[in-house]
Design a protein around this nucleic acid. Structure first.
Length: 282
DNA sequence: CTCCAGGTTCCGG
DNA sequence: CCGGAACATGGA
Protein backbone atom coordinates (compact mmCIF):
# COMPACT_ATOMS: atom_id res chain seq x y z
CA UNK A 1 0.00 0.00 0.00
CA UNK A 2 1.43 3.32 -1.09
CA UNK A 3 1.47 6.08 1.47
CA UNK A 4 0.11 9.42 0.33
CA UNK A 5 0.88 12.70 2.03
CA UNK A 6 -1.84 15.34 2.32
CA UNK A 7 -1.36 18.92 3.39
CA UNK A 8 -3.49 19.45 6.47
CA UNK A 9 -3.22 22.97 7.86
CA UNK A 10 -5.61 23.89 10.67
CA UNK A 11 -6.31 20.24 11.32
CA UNK A 12 -6.16 18.02 14.38
CA UNK A 13 -6.89 14.40 13.51
CA UNK A 14 -7.18 13.05 17.04
CA UNK A 15 -9.43 15.86 18.17
CA UNK A 16 -11.62 15.45 15.10
CA UNK A 17 -12.06 11.69 15.39
CA UNK A 18 -12.51 11.67 19.18
CA UNK A 19 -14.90 14.59 19.61
CA UNK A 20 -18.09 12.55 19.56
CA UNK A 21 -19.16 13.00 15.94
CA UNK A 22 -17.94 9.59 14.74
CA UNK A 23 -17.43 6.44 16.79
CA UNK A 24 -15.59 3.66 15.03
CA UNK A 25 -12.01 4.83 14.48
CA UNK A 26 -9.36 2.94 16.46
CA UNK A 27 -5.95 4.20 17.52
CA UNK A 28 -3.32 2.23 15.63
CA UNK A 29 0.41 2.68 15.17
CA UNK A 30 0.53 6.35 16.05
CA UNK A 31 -2.52 7.07 13.87
CA UNK A 32 -6.06 5.83 13.35
CA UNK A 33 -7.48 2.86 11.51
CA UNK A 34 -11.01 2.75 10.20
CA UNK A 35 -13.47 2.61 7.34
CA UNK A 36 -15.04 5.33 5.25
CA UNK A 37 -18.10 3.54 4.00
CA UNK A 38 -16.46 0.33 2.82
CA UNK A 39 -13.07 1.90 2.08
CA UNK A 40 -10.41 1.05 4.67
CA UNK A 41 -7.80 3.63 5.60
CA UNK A 42 -4.99 4.30 8.01
CA UNK A 43 -4.36 7.96 8.77
CA UNK A 44 -1.56 9.45 10.82
CA UNK A 45 -0.85 13.07 11.54
CA UNK A 46 2.72 14.38 11.43
CA UNK A 47 2.63 18.08 12.11
CA UNK A 48 0.87 19.84 9.27
CA UNK A 49 0.64 16.82 7.03
CA UNK A 50 -1.38 13.63 7.01
CA UNK A 51 0.08 10.29 6.01
CA UNK A 52 -2.68 8.25 4.44
CA UNK A 53 -2.62 4.60 3.47
CA UNK A 54 -5.72 3.79 1.45
CA UNK A 55 -6.72 2.69 -2.03
CA UNK A 56 -8.62 5.98 -2.29
CA UNK A 57 -6.81 8.81 -0.52
CA UNK A 58 -9.09 11.35 -2.22
CA UNK A 59 -12.01 9.81 -0.31
CA UNK A 60 -10.09 10.29 2.94
CA UNK A 61 -9.41 13.91 2.08
CA UNK A 62 -13.07 14.57 1.32
CA UNK A 63 -14.23 12.70 4.44
CA UNK A 64 -12.00 14.75 6.73
CA UNK A 65 -13.26 17.99 5.14
CA UNK A 66 -9.75 19.34 4.66
CA UNK A 67 -11.26 21.91 2.30
CA UNK A 68 -13.46 23.58 4.94
CA UNK A 69 -12.28 27.20 5.34
CA UNK A 70 -11.46 26.90 9.02
CA UNK A 71 -10.12 30.42 9.57
CA UNK A 72 -13.26 31.91 7.99
CA UNK A 73 -15.37 29.62 10.11
CA UNK A 74 -13.65 30.66 13.34
CA UNK A 75 -13.90 34.31 12.33
CA UNK A 76 -17.67 33.91 11.94
CA UNK A 77 -18.17 32.92 15.58
CA UNK A 78 -19.71 35.35 18.05
CA UNK A 79 -17.10 37.25 20.07
CA UNK A 80 -17.98 36.22 23.61
CA UNK A 81 -15.61 34.70 26.16
CA UNK A 82 -17.16 31.23 26.27
CA UNK A 83 -17.00 30.93 22.50
CA UNK A 84 -13.43 32.21 22.32
CA UNK A 85 -12.32 29.74 24.98
CA UNK A 86 -14.00 26.80 23.28
CA UNK A 87 -12.59 27.80 19.88
CA UNK A 88 -9.06 28.01 21.26
CA UNK A 89 -9.49 24.65 22.98
CA UNK A 90 -10.76 22.97 19.78
CA UNK A 91 -8.34 24.41 17.25
CA UNK A 92 -8.11 22.02 14.31
CA UNK A 93 -11.35 20.18 15.02
CA UNK A 94 -13.28 19.72 11.79
CA UNK A 95 -16.84 18.62 11.10
CA UNK A 96 -16.31 15.62 8.84
CA UNK A 97 -18.49 14.37 5.97
CA UNK A 98 -19.90 11.05 7.11
CA UNK A 99 -21.82 8.51 5.04
CA UNK A 100 -25.46 9.31 5.74
CA UNK A 101 -26.89 5.97 6.80
CA UNK A 102 -24.21 5.02 9.31
CA UNK A 103 -24.36 8.49 10.82
CA UNK A 104 -28.15 8.35 11.13
CA UNK A 105 -28.09 4.81 12.53
CA UNK A 106 -25.41 5.44 15.13
CA UNK A 107 -27.12 8.60 16.33
CA UNK A 108 -30.42 6.73 16.68
CA UNK A 109 -28.57 4.50 19.14
CA UNK A 110 -27.05 7.51 20.92
CA UNK A 111 -30.01 8.67 22.99
CA UNK A 112 -29.30 8.67 26.72
CA UNK A 113 -25.93 7.01 26.17
CA UNK A 114 -22.41 8.12 26.92
CA UNK A 115 -19.97 8.45 24.03
CA UNK A 116 -18.13 5.30 25.18
CA UNK A 117 -21.39 3.34 25.05
CA UNK A 118 -22.25 4.61 21.58
CA UNK A 119 -18.88 3.37 20.42
CA UNK A 120 -19.49 -0.08 21.94
CA UNK A 121 -22.90 -0.42 20.31
CA UNK A 122 -21.54 0.78 16.96
CA UNK A 123 -18.74 -1.77 17.07
CA UNK A 124 -21.10 -4.57 18.12
CA UNK A 125 -23.49 -3.83 15.24
CA UNK A 126 -20.65 -3.72 12.74
CA UNK A 127 -19.13 -7.00 13.93
CA UNK A 128 -22.45 -8.80 14.09
CA UNK A 129 -24.05 -7.63 10.83
CA UNK A 130 -21.40 -5.85 8.77
CA UNK A 131 -19.28 -7.01 5.85
CA UNK A 132 -15.76 -7.94 6.90
CA UNK A 133 -12.81 -6.20 5.23
CA UNK A 134 -9.15 -7.18 5.54
CA UNK A 135 -6.69 -4.32 5.68
CA UNK A 136 -2.99 -4.52 6.57
CA UNK A 137 -3.62 -7.72 8.49
CA UNK A 138 -6.47 -6.24 10.52
CA UNK A 139 -10.16 -7.16 10.39
CA UNK A 140 -12.48 -4.21 9.85
CA UNK A 141 -16.26 -4.29 9.67
CA UNK A 142 -18.44 -2.04 7.52
CA UNK A 143 -21.60 -0.54 8.95
CA UNK A 144 -24.42 -2.83 7.76
CA UNK A 145 -26.75 -1.25 5.19
CA UNK A 146 -30.43 -0.65 6.07
CA UNK A 147 -31.41 -3.74 4.06
CA UNK A 148 -29.30 -5.90 6.35
CA UNK A 149 -30.60 -4.42 9.60
CA UNK A 150 -34.17 -4.53 8.26
CA UNK A 151 -34.06 -8.32 8.30
CA UNK A 152 -32.49 -8.56 11.74
CA UNK A 153 -34.78 -9.13 14.71
CA UNK A 154 -35.28 -6.71 17.56
CA UNK A 155 -33.70 -9.33 19.84
CA UNK A 156 -30.60 -9.45 17.59
CA UNK A 157 -30.22 -5.70 17.97
CA UNK A 158 -30.82 -5.79 21.70
CA UNK A 159 -27.99 -8.31 21.89
CA UNK A 160 -25.74 -5.45 20.70
CA UNK A 161 -26.66 -3.49 23.83
CA UNK A 162 -29.20 -1.17 22.23
CA UNK A 163 -31.97 -1.58 24.79
CA UNK A 164 -35.16 0.29 23.83
CA UNK A 165 -33.29 1.90 20.91
CA UNK A 166 -33.41 -1.43 19.05
CA UNK A 167 -37.05 -0.90 18.13
CA UNK A 168 -36.33 2.55 16.69
CA UNK A 169 -33.31 1.48 14.65
CA UNK A 170 -35.16 -1.51 13.24
CA UNK A 171 -38.22 0.53 12.27
CA UNK A 172 -36.10 3.20 10.58
CA UNK A 173 -34.00 0.59 8.74
CA UNK A 174 -37.21 -0.95 7.39
CA UNK A 175 -38.56 2.39 6.17
CA UNK A 176 -35.35 3.04 4.27
CA UNK A 177 -34.85 -0.49 2.98
CA UNK A 178 -38.41 -0.54 1.63
CA UNK A 179 -37.87 2.69 -0.26
CA UNK A 180 -40.56 4.51 1.71
CA UNK A 181 -37.88 7.04 2.66
CA UNK A 182 -34.95 7.94 0.41
CA UNK A 183 -32.03 9.51 2.24
CA UNK A 184 -30.48 10.66 -1.04
CA UNK A 185 -33.33 13.00 -1.92
CA UNK A 186 -32.70 14.95 1.28
CA UNK A 187 -29.55 16.31 -0.36
CA UNK A 188 -31.69 18.53 -2.56
CA UNK A 189 -33.96 19.80 0.23
CA UNK A 190 -33.65 22.98 2.27
CA UNK A 191 -32.37 22.63 5.84
CA UNK A 192 -35.90 22.92 7.20
CA UNK A 193 -37.38 20.36 4.81
CA UNK A 194 -34.56 17.89 5.41
CA UNK A 195 -34.94 18.35 9.18
CA UNK A 196 -38.62 17.49 8.99
CA UNK A 197 -37.95 14.49 6.75
CA UNK A 198 -35.46 13.14 9.27
CA UNK A 199 -37.78 13.83 12.19
CA UNK A 200 -40.43 11.66 10.58
CA UNK A 201 -38.22 8.63 11.20
CA UNK A 202 -38.76 6.50 14.33
CA UNK A 203 -36.32 7.44 17.10
CA UNK A 204 -35.30 10.68 15.40
CA UNK A 205 -36.27 13.93 17.12
CA UNK A 206 -34.89 17.43 16.78
CA UNK A 207 -31.52 16.70 18.34
CA UNK A 208 -30.62 13.61 16.34
CA UNK A 209 -32.00 15.12 13.11
CA UNK A 210 -29.70 18.10 13.58
CA UNK A 211 -26.71 15.83 14.26
CA UNK A 212 -27.36 14.05 10.96
CA UNK A 213 -27.81 17.33 9.08
CA UNK A 214 -24.51 18.57 10.50
CA UNK A 215 -22.36 15.45 10.37
CA UNK A 216 -23.68 13.78 7.20
CA UNK A 217 -25.44 16.40 5.05
CA UNK A 218 -22.86 19.13 5.61
CA UNK A 219 -25.46 21.62 6.83
CA UNK A 220 -22.95 23.59 8.87
CA UNK A 221 -25.61 25.82 10.37
CA UNK A 222 -27.42 22.93 12.08
CA UNK A 223 -27.21 23.26 15.87
CA UNK A 224 -28.03 20.08 17.83
CA UNK A 225 -29.05 20.82 21.42
CA UNK A 226 -28.24 17.99 23.81
CA UNK A 227 -27.88 17.99 27.60
CA UNK A 228 -24.34 19.42 27.43
CA UNK A 229 -25.15 22.25 25.04
CA UNK A 230 -28.32 23.08 26.90
CA UNK A 231 -26.27 23.43 30.08
CA UNK A 232 -23.75 25.69 28.31
CA UNK A 233 -26.48 27.86 26.77
CA UNK A 234 -28.34 28.31 30.05
CA UNK A 235 -25.26 29.00 32.15
CA UNK A 236 -23.51 31.23 29.62
CA UNK A 237 -26.22 33.13 27.76
CA UNK A 238 -29.23 32.94 30.07
CA UNK A 239 -27.57 33.21 33.45
CA UNK A 240 -30.09 33.71 36.26
CA UNK A 241 -33.00 33.94 33.85
CA UNK A 242 -35.98 31.79 34.66
CA UNK A 243 -38.63 30.28 32.42
CA UNK A 244 -36.25 29.88 29.51
CA UNK A 245 -37.99 27.34 27.32
CA UNK A 246 -36.37 24.88 24.94
CA UNK A 247 -37.96 26.81 22.10
CA UNK A 248 -36.28 30.01 23.30
CA UNK A 249 -32.90 28.25 23.32
CA UNK A 250 -33.51 26.94 19.81
CA UNK A 251 -34.36 30.37 18.40
CA UNK A 252 -31.38 31.95 20.13
CA UNK A 253 -28.88 29.38 18.91
CA UNK A 254 -30.15 29.52 15.33
CA UNK A 255 -29.43 33.22 15.04
CA UNK A 256 -26.67 33.99 17.54
CA UNK A 257 -24.07 31.52 16.28
CA UNK A 258 -24.47 32.35 12.61
CA UNK A 259 -23.58 30.72 9.34
CA UNK A 260 -21.35 28.03 10.87
CA UNK A 261 -23.38 27.45 14.03
CA UNK A 262 -22.78 23.71 13.80
CA UNK A 263 -19.04 24.25 14.21
CA UNK A 264 -19.65 26.58 17.15
CA UNK A 265 -21.90 23.96 18.69
CA UNK A 266 -19.34 21.17 18.30
CA UNK A 267 -16.63 23.31 19.88
CA UNK A 268 -18.81 24.30 22.82
CA UNK A 269 -19.89 20.68 23.23
CA UNK A 270 -16.41 19.20 23.21
CA UNK A 271 -14.93 21.87 25.42
CA UNK A 272 -17.69 21.50 28.01
CA UNK A 273 -17.51 17.74 28.01
CA UNK A 274 -13.74 17.41 28.35
CA UNK A 275 -13.24 20.14 30.95
CA UNK A 276 -16.10 18.78 33.02
CA UNK A 277 -14.56 15.31 32.99
CA UNK A 278 -11.19 16.67 34.10
CA UNK A 279 -12.68 18.49 37.05
CA UNK A 280 -14.45 15.35 38.17
CA UNK A 281 -11.42 13.05 38.01
CA UNK A 282 -8.86 15.40 39.51
C1' DC B 1 -25.35 1.40 45.28
C1' DT B 2 -26.66 5.63 43.02
C1' DC B 3 -26.19 8.67 39.33
C1' DC B 4 -26.29 9.87 34.64
C1' DA B 5 -25.50 9.61 29.74
C1' DG B 6 -24.82 13.80 22.44
C1' DG B 7 -33.41 11.90 23.59
C1' DT B 8 -37.78 10.38 21.85
C1' DT B 9 -42.28 9.13 22.54
C1' DC B 10 -46.41 8.80 24.84
C1' DC B 11 -49.73 10.19 28.18
C1' DG B 12 -52.59 13.03 31.37
C1' DG B 13 -53.87 17.66 32.69
C1' DC C 1 -50.06 22.86 24.11
C1' DC C 2 -47.05 21.46 28.09
C1' DG C 3 -44.60 18.99 31.84
C1' DG C 4 -43.52 14.55 33.37
C1' DA C 5 -42.66 9.61 33.09
C1' DA C 6 -41.14 5.48 30.72
C1' DC C 7 -37.78 3.50 28.19
C1' DA C 8 -32.52 -0.20 28.79
C1' DT C 9 -27.78 -0.39 29.63
C1' DG C 10 -23.27 0.18 31.55
C1' DG C 11 -19.37 3.05 33.28
C1' DA C 12 -17.96 6.22 36.90
Amino acid sequence: MVEKKLAAPDFDLKLTLESGQVFHWAASGGGFLGLIGDVPAHVEQCGKELRVRSAHPEIVSDYLALDHPLSNIQASFPADDAMREAAAFCRGLRIIRQPVWECLATFITSSMKQVAHIRQMSVAIRERFGKRVEFEGAQLFCYPPPERLARASEADLRACGLGYRAKHLLATAKLIASGAVDLETLQTMSDTEALEALRSLPGVGAKIANCVLLFAYERLRAFPIDVWIERVLRETYFKRKRNVTAERLRLFSETYFGEFGGYAQQYLFHHARVTSRKSRTS
